[in-house]
Design a protein around this nucleic acid. Sequence first.
RNA 1: GGCCCCUUCGCCAAGUGGUAAGGCCGCGGAUUGCAAAUCCGCUAUCCCCGGUUCGAAUCCGGGAGGGGCCUCCA
Length: 491
Amino acid sequence: MRVRVYNTLTRQKEDFKTVAEGRVGMYVCGPTVYKPSHVGHMVGPVIFDTIKRFLSFLGYQVTLVVNITDVDDKLIVESAKRGFSVTQLAETITADYLTNLRLLRVDGIDHFPRATAHIREIIDMIQGLIAKGFAYPSGGDVYFDVTRDEDYGKLCNRDPEQLEAGARIEVSGLKRNPGDFALWKRAKPGEPQWESPWGPGRPGWHIECSAMSMKLLGPSFDIHGGGLDLQFPHHENELAQSESFSQLPFARFWLHNGLMKTGDKKMSKSEGNEIVVTELLKKHHPETLRYLLLSSHYRSPIEYSEDRLLELRRSLESFYRFFDRFKRITGLDYYSLPVTAKQSEPVQGGEGLMGKIAPLRQSFLEFMADDFNTGGALGILHEMLPILNRFADQAGLESAGPAARAREEFHQGVLCLRELFSLMGLFLEPISTPAAASDQTLDGVVRLLIDLRADARKNKNFALADQIRKRLTELNITLEDRQGETTWRQG
RNA sequence: GGCCCCUUCGCCAAGUGGUAAGGCCGCGGAUUGCAAAUCCGCUAUCCCCGGUUCGAAUCCGGGAGGGGCCUCCA
């Protein structure tokens, strides 16, 4: 399958070709761990996890790396403020980040390299850059000389001269050019520090990504991802120092995800308008958040709002109900159905249900192959749902008759749904409904009321039957009468 | 000031030259004792103006509005 990818470097969609046949190396910029993750931090991981799922499905062997930057000015300031050591702070915040990723079913990250665990590699790279004339030590710091890099600015389409016009460039007597950036920073007393040829200090902001991606993925790899806001200076600098060091092309495709917004403004720690993931997850299921992040194209900004999450939850509910229905029909648990890791035989269309499902499956894959259009792909899944429900309605699958043939067909259709949703990392496991399934007492009580209501209905005492149902509705318990039995659910 | 992006139904959102996916909300119908669930049906000519083209939401030019980056940021 031909995969098309929008490449920031060329500002156009290109055919996806890998450096090494059949393998994909992917590096995504993770957080600087000084404050708990906000919703925006989850965008990249979810998107790139989904991209990995898709590429793996196509048969690629994908290695996904997300770095943890655990030494930085921000950590020093924040840890002092909170009375922690930098290490303690980094560990606490890293744990928060990893927990959030796990809840969002970001399962595909193979390595989480930490900057502080790669000081050796960082120093080696800086030495190499100095030796090659791209960097210079100055007063205990080491700077990268942007004028020595021929194509500095190519990722962001900027001239170094233009950059100098920026008002925020820090004037430092230690730099040769205003645009030069620190590879190594001299430590002030009490700051985290490591020995180096230039005296005690710590890495600058961008170098850790160069050193760690090179170590884990080699000098040339396939996909480099991150938030749009990292394009400059972080990625530009990373690119410059990596290619200057290796004299080889760095990442082949640069993918930048759009930024999360709240109230029309970018969500960020510096704006102070961030929604902390942990707080959000107290009110919303992580699956709803993952669904939000996948419901639009990854390059678009995503507008976060409470109402939107509620709306999307309603959208997911129809699938949750469908899985219950699937169980009633087949006796099988949707969540136990196999998840295909790789693309299997082409799904046969033919007549009947699969004749409708197979072309939609194809459309889904085409959406994904076209710059990972998850929004379009999810739309397809929403088209499958009524087809499956209609089939179940028309074939009378919930009534007693044998209909083994139709049941099997239905099963096949749902397997396909399972396959595609698993590529999105959705519906991998049952959502935990706080009381419903787990609380035996509640279930017993509601079933008692259902039985009483059934008697009332049998006696045509609809007033009583309706009152029971109404009172339960007020308690957020919904009854559904269907052939032969009444079921209940919360919500 | 420089670079870049966006503007599609009430809201969200696909669509990148061939005549507008999908979701939420709303309305009507089937089903139901009544509901719920499910199914069916209904609601847009794509910010404005001009151009290219047999044909444009899609390409070009201009305008309006919104956003991102210009060394803190996923």
